[in-house]
């Protein structure tokens, strides 16, 4: 089963349409990179996927649960890392995670177990009592990923999660995401406009002005456009220089 299925989704702000009949899926065990220049509609799509905007047209299913008909079941299967940090800077790492666990209805004992396991996995156990304010950007991102995975979602959404990170932290994040897909058989949908972040085995979606202009593996897209590199294809499809 696909972790995410988006069917015929359109969205507009009043008279201005920003998403036009999107259709795509995110398979489990892989990273799906959602590429697009600024104003392509990526953040609007993330807002729809996280129920922050109401769906106007089409259907979104997260792990088989319809986001409109069964939003609570769908949200249980969804972990999110927003572009801007949503951590509480004045609380410790552990307090932030405990809050998230409580929002998902986990008992304190269950939450403690999950937090221990996730902090261990993210190699953050020693920082658990540190206030988030004291962490660097890379560690904060890892805390957010730990938080997003606390409830064992089938789909992890990352909205430009590498923005503001130095190259080493960015590389570490990408490696970490791919190992997560392998270890936990989850799907990762990551929006970005940094083409270097895409791995050869990733599924790629290119969004331009609300239209999905490419959808498939890098190899399949390259075959289709007979181009040598993804940046050239991106440039051709978006009529902009690659970033």
């Amino acid at each position: 089963m696909n972790a995410l299925q988006v069917s015929d989704v359109s969205f507009s702000y009043g008279a201005r349409a920003v998403l036009h009949g999107l259709n795509f899926t995110c398979p489990r065990g892989r990273v799906t990179a959602l590429l697009g220049p600024n104003a392509a509609g990526k953040t609007t799509l993330i807002s729809l996927l996280t129920c922050l905007y109401p769906l106007q047209q089409g259907q979104i299913k997260v792990s088989g649960h319809d986001l409109t008909r069964a939003p609570r079941s769908a949200l249980r299967e969804l972990g999110v890392v927003f572009q801007q940090s949503t951590l509480d800077l004045d609380l410790t790492v552990e307090q932030n995670l405990r809050y998230h666990a409580a929002l998902h209805g986990f008992s304190p004992a269950d939450a403690k177990q999950r937090i221990n396991a996730e902090l261990e996995r993210q190699q953050l156990s020693e920082r658990r009592h540190d206030k988030v304010r004291l962490l660097n950007g890379g560690h904060r991102r890892r805390v957010e990923i730990a938080r997003a995975l606390l409830h064992n979602p089938r789909l992890l959404l990352l909205d430009e999660a590498s923005v503001g990170l130095d190259p080493a932290s960015r590389q570490a994040l990408q490696t970490h995401l791919r190992s997560l897909c392998q270890e936990r058989d989850i799907a990762v949908l990551s929006t970005t406009h940094i083409l270097d972040e895409i791995g050869p085995e990733d599924h790629v979606l290119i969004l331009n002005k609300g239209l999905l202009v490419a959808n498939g593996s890098i190899a399949a897209i390259q075959d289709q456009y007979q181009q040598q590199s993804l940046p050239q294809i991106f440039e051709q499809l978006t009529q902009k220089a690659p970033l």
């Binding site: 129920c51 939003p71 609570r72 949200l75 999110v80 949503t86």
Partner: peptide, 14 residues
């Protein structure tokens, strides 16, 4: 727009 309310609202509770 900015903060923890987004995390609150992506909770599966009503």
């Amino acid at each position: 727009e900015m903060g923890s309310m987004r995390i609150l609202l992506t909770s599966p509770q009503p």
